[in-house]
């Protein structure tokens, strides 16, 4: 997989910034079985995704393993300007985490 587990876009239009994030993560529910061994694959999923704009939290997302593999999140907030920073960070139930910054694109 690519260097960062997060792919991130942020665009501002008509005063609203829309953020779209795609994360690379197995999102195992703990219910699935390994086809070869028959053993259950332990749960391993992102529990929390935090979105910040200029360092201020705009969304805190809690997930279960019921979110699809390689999960997608989109949210939007009022404000934002070309060149300002949006950050998305995730943390999973096994202590894994990642974070990614992106500059907002577009005109107010």
């Amino acid at each position: 997989m690519a260097k960062s587990s997060i792919k991130l876009r942020a665009k501002v239009k008509n005063g609203v910034t829309t953020v779209k994030a795609l994360m690379s993560h197995p999102m195992e529910t703990g219910q699935r079985k390994n086809k070869k061994t028959g053993e259950k694959i332990p749960e391993h999923f992102i529990q929390e995704v935090v979105g910040t704009y200029n360092g201020k939290v705009v969304i805190t997302t809690s997930w279960s393993g019921g979110v699809s593999k390689d999960p997608y999140l989109s949210f939007s907030f009022k404000g934002g300007a070309n060149g300002e920073t949006v950050t998305v960070s995730w943390s999973d139930n096994k202590g894994g985490s990642d974070t990614k910054d992106v500059k907002i694109k577009g005109k107010k």
């Binding site: 219910q31 997302t61 279960s64």
Partner: peptide, 24 residues
């Protein structure tokens, strides 16, 4: 689903009530 709750989003004051994800 066996565990129905899939996702919960806590929104800030400026956050628009419009979220998207993909679920199982």
């Amino acid at each position: 689903n066996p565990s129905p709750m899939v996702a919960s989003f806590a929104l800030g004051e400026t956050t628009v009530a419009d979220v998207s994800t993909r679920i199982k």
